[in-house]
Nucleic acid binder design. Structure first.
Length: 575
RNA sequence: GCGCCCGUAGCUCAGCGGAUAGAGCAGGGGACUUCUAAUCCCAAGGCCGCAGGUUCGAAUCCUGCCGGGCGCACCA
């Protein structure tokens, strides 16, 4: 059952009070250091009414409904309305959330289909830290959308097509002897890529043969296609292994590579051309935009079909977009991709709108994230050997976590230690990636990413574990009956108010496609719980207070567990 | 040249028009016979890049600068 937040109920009350007084008013309710909530909207309303704001505020206070929610309401400062809520109402809200297996979180996404494109590694290449952001952010958004009742179609748009395959396959044909390296870890393909690349760059005759191999691949030459398929399969097995290690819900079923759209590309070009959206320029089929120009002042087009008749990724993205709208019935399209692709997506979305493939009712959003920079402030290179392999980063994170875990829990060994180290290490990496505004660039810093103190994943895991510990020690563990007649201490009150904001926060996360808001919320909640933990004994409390505090622990634990789960971060019962 | 993103404490970052701008890290001082000290408390640390404008009120919105990153025709 959906439980509206106290903030939203109170907002309704204030708006109603204002209407009974004089005018419409957006309450603009927010948490405050001076009261439980403050309503700022009176100030703006007073201006349009050309009236004294404090007087208007006083009338709002007078007209507030007497429904037991508000304990005190006073006018403060230039015309703020400061509101304290009644303990009884707070406890009743606690009881409602504790009593619901979804913690009162609604399903505003029910009936909405979102197609979300994320991760996008390239066949025959290592996954690196850049893929981490897309994968982790995309996974978190998927989880939140699904939790809010939405239908989500995951799309891993892998780079499985292009000229580099000619080079790889041709090299294999000419060097049938086994390439060194373990097939399960991408070592073999990485070596193959390096060798083929080196010869391609230095041996023009080989480069020509590689290009002819590309033509053979495009012409569906059986042996060439078979060789391509082997490479794709080997890479895909590797990706799946990485996703498992990351604890990310991406599977083979979600993988639809660029090659899947090959058959649709000619029709894409034809329709654009027939509709007058695309025109031929310099032999290439192009879509132009009034406001997009290059350094020379000439317009910069989206190139749908190259002069040589081949298709680039613009055509592929358009075909994928159309398929997602028409066949998958997407109500919303998300692309979790590096911010450097901003112009590309603008052009693709604009083209799709013009072509009529993207109805005005379907938003298409480039969920951009900042570039991962090296210590020198330059982006990581993908070709030269400087890239940090994602698996190495994960291994290091888990190894470091294992050291800390083992030091804190000498009794923990073997598989149990490995499990705990994985939970803590992966949690640290994901939290570091999710906790900040995704649009900023950031310098890759393993020290910071793997830190296990302060505002980190482990802090939240720790807070969760302490809650669980209390609940486990409570002999009457099941008795979390809320007594609404009790009085609340400040720390209890603050905790209820924070807990109550969970559902609203999830809605914000979806609205802005910003998982970092959930991180910020959970961190605040964990801090508020810690204050409660330090000030309010639970197990030693007596009378109604004990049940209430156990209920607070229960709801805090469930909220932390659910919230962290939505970020893809594990929540062990013990740390 | 044009476009997008970003300038907040020594460092890394929150803050989506509201009262005295907040965290973490680093550095200083304290707190474990207590439900987990992977924690907490105290002190210190700020022309919110600069200058105008809008507003009762601006770190937040607008304009112009300065500084940094990225992107701009057949790679993806």
């Amino acid at each position: 059952m959906t439980v509206p937040s106290l903030a939203s109920s109170l907002s309704d009350s204030v708006a109603a009070a204002a209407r009974r007084g004089m005018a419409d008013l957006a309450p603009q309710l927010r948490r405050s250091a001076h009261a439980d909530f403050q309503a700022d909207g009176v100030l703006a309303a007073a201006r349009t009414l050309r009236r004294n704001p404090r007087q208007v505020a006083a009338e709002v206070v007078d007209h507030l409904p007497e429904d037991g929610l508000v304990a005190t309401a006073v006018v403060a400062g230039p015309g703020f309305v400061n509101i304290e809520l009644a303990d009884r109402a707070l406890l009743a809200q606690l009881a409602r959330r504790v009593g619901d297996d979804r913690l009162g979180v609604g399903t505003p996404e029910a009936g909405v289909t979102t197609v979300i494109d994320y991760s996008q590694p390239n066949i025959a290449k290592e996954m690196h830290v850049g893929h981490l952001r897309s994968t982790v952010i995309g996974d978190a958004l998927v989880r939140v959308l699904e939790h809010l009742g939405g239908t989500v179609v995951r799309r891993n748009h892998i780079g499985d097509w292009g000229t580099q395959f000619g080079m790889l396959i041709q090299y294999q044909v000419e060097h049938p002897e086994p390439v060194p390296g373990d097939t399960g870890t991408m070592g073999r393909l990485a070596t193959l890529y390096r060798l083929a690349r080196a010869q391609f760059d230095t041996d023009s005759a080989f480069a020509d043969r590689a290009r002819r191999r590309v033509v053979a691949l495009q012409a569906s030459d059986p042996s060439t296609v078979a060789a391509w398929q082997d490479i794709v399969d080997e890479s895909t097995r590797y990706f799946t292994d990485v996703y498992d290690r990351l604890g990310v819900r991406l599977t083979d079923a979600d993988t639809v590579g660029e090659s899947a759209y090959n058959a649709a590309l000619p029709a894409i070009a034809d329709e654009l051309e027939r509709g007058g959206v695309a025109v031929t320029s310099d032999g290439a089929l192009c879509v132009f935009f009034d406001d997009l120009r290059g350094p020379d002042g000439e317009p910069t087009p989206l190139i749908v079909r190259k002069r040589d008749g081949g298709f680039g990724y613009a055509a592929t993205d358009l075909a994928a977009l159309r398929q997602r709208v028409v066949e998958l019935h997407a109500d919303r399209l998300l692309y979790v991709v590096d911010a450097r692709q901003a112009r590309h997506f603008r052009m693709v979305f604009d083209t799709a709108r013009r072509a009529g493939w993207l109805p005005p009712t379907v938003p298409a959003v480039h969920v951009a994230f900042g570039t991962v920079l090296g210590p020198d402030g330059r982006p990581f290179k993908t070709r030269a050997g400087d890239t940090v392999r994602l698996v190495d980063l994960l291994t290091e994170a888990v190894d470091r976590a294992r050291e800390v875990v083992a030091a804190k829990n000498p009794g923990l060994t073997g598989a149990a230690l490995d499990e705990r180290a994985w939970q803590v290490g992966i949690g640290a990496v994901k939290y570091a990636d999710l906790a900040t505004n995704r649009t900023r660039d950031y310098v890759y810093d393993p020290e910071r990413m793997l830190a296990l103190a302060g505002n980190t994943g482990v802090y939240l895991q720790y807070a969760h574990a302490r809650v669980r510990s209390i609940l486990a020690r409570a002999a009457d563990g099941g008795d979390i009956t809320v007594d609404v007649t009790a009085t609340l201490e400040p720390a209890e009150k603050a905790l209820i108010l924070d807990l109550d904001a969970f559902a609203d926060t999830l809605v914000e996360v979806v609205a802005g496609h910003e998982p970092h808001r959930l991180c910020g919320y959970l961190y605040r909640l964990a801090q508020t719980f810690t204050t409660f933990y330090e000030h309010c004994p639970v197990l030693r409390a007596t009378g109604p207070r004990r049940g209430n505090r156990l209920a607070l622990c229960h709801l805090t634990g469930e909220t932390l567990r659910t919230g962290l789960h939505l970020l893809g971060i594990p929540t062990p019962d013990h740390l």
